[in-house]
Amino acid sequence: MLIHANPKRFMDLSGRLLPYFSGVAGFLLVLGLYLALFVAPKDYQQSETVRIMFVHVPAALMTTFVYAFMAVASIVGLAWKHPVADMAAKAAAPIGACFAVLMLATGALWGQPMWGTWWVWDARLTSALVQLFLYIGYIALWEAIDEPTRAARAAAILAIVGVINIPIIKFSVEWWNTLHQPASLAKLDGPSIDPSFLWPLLIMMAGYVMFFATLVLLRTRTEILNRRMRSLHMAQVRVGEQVKSYG
């Protein structure tokens, strides 16, 4: 990763990877959605409502995964001063926020028929909502500070501090009693989910990860190009002023 921290090298490599990433993401998402919506059986308790899970669970996974990605990129950005790491963290934030919104929305849609309520303030749901606020705060911080290196530093500190919420989300269902059910997948005695649900779910998860990889590469490239444009523009202005002062 560090070798590619040079923006020029990053542009070359990401440009070559992008078509493959987007192709794989598209293939996995189409296949996963087809399996989830048409092939997977009904659940013995939830009936057809179980299909919401195939969109909700990967979105929840990505909500935490994207934030962890941002925190790692922020540490690299802070400690090694690599500009591409800062830009990757910045590029990932809105994507993570969208996953968080998707997670909360699909969770509410599932909660209404199953639990009998759209929303409760239990530890899992509340910590998941806090995660969305962390994303929004991170984005706002970048927007609030004009100078990129200072903005990057402030936002990186927020990202690293906020990473504490991730184990809280993960273990909230074990540390406290909650309305939300405990984990089905990451269990010591193996997943308590039938293979006919597990496979579509795993394919959806892989699809979400590749979708994120595609978007974050694309958005980091855009950020690099934007900065190049800005410095070109500034250089132009400077030359223009010099010409004026000589003339």
């Binding site: 013995y44 199953m114 009998g116 309520t117 308590s192």
Partner: peptide, 16 residues
């Protein structure tokens, strides 16, 4: 208000 708790088990009706 009464809310139902759902457990973490997912299986098709035939398996159940």
């Amino acid at each position: 208000q009464v809310l139902a708790k759902h457990d973490e088990t997912y299986m098709p009706p035939e398996v159940a």
